[in-house]
């Protein structure tokens, strides 16, 4: 039997809008995945711990507040410290193109621009998670 894909969708930082994150969560569910949703205003520690306890394959971070440069790498770093570097972290939201190389260098594996379709994100997840 194939493994079910489990993804944590989280919103680090202080902005309180999670419409985008919820749209993603629903799209992933409709694609047959189990989505753990943790709500808004999460610290990197909260996100990393939740990801480990929930045994997810991937963490999707959404940020609109501009705090992605400090918060996204922090999540990756804590996961690594706790021996969970196999959990893939990707991001989305309002992120300037110029920031992408640095985020990728910091271990964020993929960044989706605001124009990205949910199909693209689903495809990315399916192609990068081992389900057997």
């Amino acid at each position: 039997m194939a493994r079910k894909i489990r993804v944590l969708i989280a919103k680090p930082g202080l902005d309180g809008h999670d419409r985008g994150a919820k749209v993603i969560a629903r799209a992933l569910r409709d694609a047959g995945m189990e989505v753990i949703y943790t709500g808004i205003r999460q610290t990197p520690e909260q996100i990393a711990n939740a990801a480990i306890q929930e045994g997810v394959d991937m963490v999707g971070l959404s940020s609109l507040s501009g705090a992605h440069m400090s918060l996204f790498p922090k999540v990756v770093q804590i996961l690594k410290e706790k021996g969970a570097e196999d959990i893939i972290v990707f991001g989305g939201g309002i992120i300037p193109v110029d920031d992408i190389p640095e985020l990728k260098k910091a271990g964020i594996r993929e960044i989706f621009q605001p124009g990205a379709s949910t199909e693209e994100i689903i495809k990315y997840i399916q192609e990068n998670v081992k389900t057997t």
């Binding site: 629903r26 569910r29 995945m33 189990e34 989505v35 949703y37 943790t38 939740a50």
Partner: peptide, 8 residues
Amino acid sequence: GAILGDRI
């Protein structure tokens, strides 16, 4: 699929 939101 499922959305698991109890953690919120």
